[in-house]
Design a protein around this nucleic acid. Structure first.
Lengths: 198, 198
DNA sequence: AGAGGCATACCGACTGGTTGGTATTGTGTC
DNA sequence: GACACAATACCAACCAGTCGGTATGCCTCT
């Protein structure tokens, strides 16, 4: 990536927070500008439309997540099963602070725009699938070792993990706290342990 | 509940569809009126504000869901474990037609309004929790019979089930089809089978 | 070095369409 | 005629996007 201007990055970071707090339609361009300490003039210099911002923000979020998970401490574990369980532990561990700091932009965006903004939907689908593909590699390796004959596919389990995480965020929003999400991911971890028996 | 006017019910039914298609902020009052074949004059006769509509729609949705699940065929099954598995099967079976016909209004609403509309958030939390409580009764009975010493609580498993369903809806929206949701719920069913061993 | 020219970045007032909500006026029913 | 319901017209606020303008840096030609 060529070094993009600091202001553009500030706008994207602001968009992550604002969209995750108020949703897409509920956020105004000026909300994002205020969060980034810039003006609308500057905003429309960098982005043609609000929709373009959302698509760029999805990419930005995905890049950040990639960096986070590919540099997480557990990637060095030799056993793919251990890596998978550590991934869930890691996802539990980062459920700290405000909801807008740890919830998923992609889930938030796609939920409310899947029907009205096909381009945003497609971007979210792409990034979510990329993340699941990453998971599915470890899952496939773990399955080969611990449950080679099981009926389920690695990809389907990857999506299941992703679904549980997304749903945990919704419940956390409903209950205004991460506790319920922690419980859900604990169940998810238990499922993985039961599927991949040592 | 006293017999409410037909037009009010039409508006509520319309709100279910419109909010699930376009979200809360993305829907206009006139969208709902058009779907219900009424005008704004009539709308504001029945509801003071758009927010009040959303809260009433959450109640309406919850009532419908209650009716659906308390009259589902499987409630007669004697074994609570069977009832629980049949519940998941039933949830899989109703993933037909358009997304706006089977996704959950509560998850959609709370996702984008938890920060900006506390009253809507609270309504969604209440109805979601009620549904989980209903599940938790069967879970508790099944746990007592098949896994009395397990570490998890019935309530936490109820929320986990709910989370997986909500997340499956998000993925279905991202992929524009129910297939991925079916796979997710199949994993959920497998987890329940593994937890409650006959 | 310095003048001139040009592109990028940024600002903030403005516009035109939209939208939640109101006021007013029917209309059917008891 | 009182009341509930519904339709139309309307208003004020809001918001995405525009536009004219300024500041700053960079390149080129002398």
């Amino acid at each position: 990536m060529q070094p993009q201007h600091q202001s553009k990055t500030r706008l994207l970071d602001a968009a992550l927070l604002v969209f995750r707090s108020r949703g897409y339609a509920g956020s105004t361009v000026e909300d994002v500008c205020a969060e980034a300490d810039l003006t609308k003039g500057s905003f429309f210099h960098h982005f043609k439309t609000k929709e373009e911002l959302a698509i760029a923000a999805a990419q930005h979020f995905s890049d950040r997540a990639d960096a986070l998970f590919t540099h997480a401490p557990y990637i060095d574990l030799p056993d793919p099963r251990d890596r998978l369980l550590a991934y869930v532990d890691f996802r539990i561990a980062i459920l700290k602070g405000e909801l807008r700091d740890y919830t998923c932009l992609l889930g938030t965006l796609v939920q409310e725009t899947y029907q009205t903004h096909p381009a945003i939907r497609a971007a979210c689908e792409r990034h979510l699938t990329t993340h699941v593909d990453m998971l599915a590699r470890d899952i496939a390796a773990a399955k080969a070792r611990y449950a080679p004959d099981a009926a389920w596919t690695p990809e389907s389990l990857g999506f299941h993990i992703q679904a549980t995480i997304q749903g945990a965020f919704i419940l956390a929003k409903a209950k205004n706290g991460a506790a319920v999400a922690v419980q859900c991911l604990a169940h998810l971890r238990r499922y993985l342990e039961l599927l991949l028996v040592r």
